[in-house]
């Protein structure tokens, strides 16, 4: 049974595309067949993050319009055999993205992949609502920052009302992925803590990805962080998250601080 996962957030710049690339690569690394689809028509970037920007010939809109076959538009990853990318169109109008068209593409992808990962654009417009439309599982990517948390709350509301699952009386499986987390700053009371965000959003936590230099390094070279540096804290956090998505009963790997005493001190001071 294949599963459709949407990576969403509402707010831009929180790490949706980074997450879609890193998680897809991690799932594929486990031997699963994964297709990752960029829904950000007009502002595609997943191809760049995955290092496939020079291999894009056809895109999602071409497939929807019948100008290309799905198999022609899918780009096979050069590093992981079971990973494929379906890029968004850079030039077409967003209106080309239609509900029926997206439905057709997802149904066809389901025939040959275990996971279909939909990388949502920011916002709550058509691209974002269509990216979440067919999802079985939603990953809400949130930064420990007020505007991101507020937008995530809004997105959770949409997941519970505008997805096919929700409309047919089902429950969409939702997970929180907290990214760009800085344990030191959180323990000093300068940043919302994991518990604060969980309290507010009330959805289960899939993982915490620490703020990491390795993420930018990975995007510089066009390789998901789980491929370019799987041993890094961010890489490990994504790999653990992927395993947990697959149902593995793994503990959350909280990013550890080198300054353990500060953490303790900060907590006491805030109390």
């Amino acid at each position: 049974m294949s599963k459709v996962l949407v990576v969403t957030s509402g707010k831009g710049g929180v790490g949706k595309t980074t997450t879609a690339a890193a998680l897809s690569a991690a799932l594929a690394g486990e031997g699963k067949k994964v297709a990752v689809v960029d829904f950000d028509v007009g502002l595609r970037n997943l191809d760049l993050i995955m290092g496939a920007e020079r291999r894009v010939v056809f895109d999602l809109i071409d497939v929807i319009n019948g100008d290309a076959k799905l198999s022609q538009a899918l780009i096979k990853d050069k590093r992981i055999e079971t990973l494929s990318l379906l890029p968004a169109s850079q030039t077409r109008d967003k209106d080309a993205l239609t509900e029926d068209g997206v439905n057709g593409v997802i149904e066809e992808l389901k025939k040959s992949f275990d996971w279909i990962v939909c990388d949502s654009p920011a916002g709550i417009e058509r691209g974002a609502t269509l990216a979440m439309r067919h999802a079985d599982v939603a990953l809400v990517v949130t930064n420990p920052e007020i505007s991101s948390v507020r937008d995530s709350d809004r997105i959770i509301g949409l997941l519970d009302s505008k997805t096919l699952k929700a409309e047919t009386g089902g429950d969409i499986e939702k997970h929180l992925l907290l990214t760009r987390y800085d344990t030191r700053r959180a323990s000093r009371g300068e940043m919302l803590k994991v518990e604060d965000v969980l309290d507010i959003l009330s959805i289960p936590l899939l993982g915490v990805v620490p703020e990491s230099e390795d993420v930018l390094k990975a995007s510089n070279v066009g390789s998901p962080v789980t491929v370019s540096n799987p041993q890094s804290a961010a890489g490990m956090a994504y790999i653990t998250a992927a395993k947990r998505l697959e149902g593995a009963d793994l503990p959350l790997t909280a990013p550890t601080s080198r300054f353990g005493f500060l953490k303790f001190f900060g907590r006491r001071a805030a109390a």
Binding site: E190, A269, A270
Partner: peptide, 25 residues
């Protein structure tokens, strides 16, 4: 302690969010 207390902006963020989201929801 005062110095550290003054820096604690996260609880303010949490409280603001809780009030705002209670209304938005």
């Amino acid at each position: 302690l005062d110095f550290l207390m003054r820096r604690s902006s996260a609880p303010v963020a949490r409280d603001r969010l809780q009030i705002l989201l209670a209304h938005e929801r």
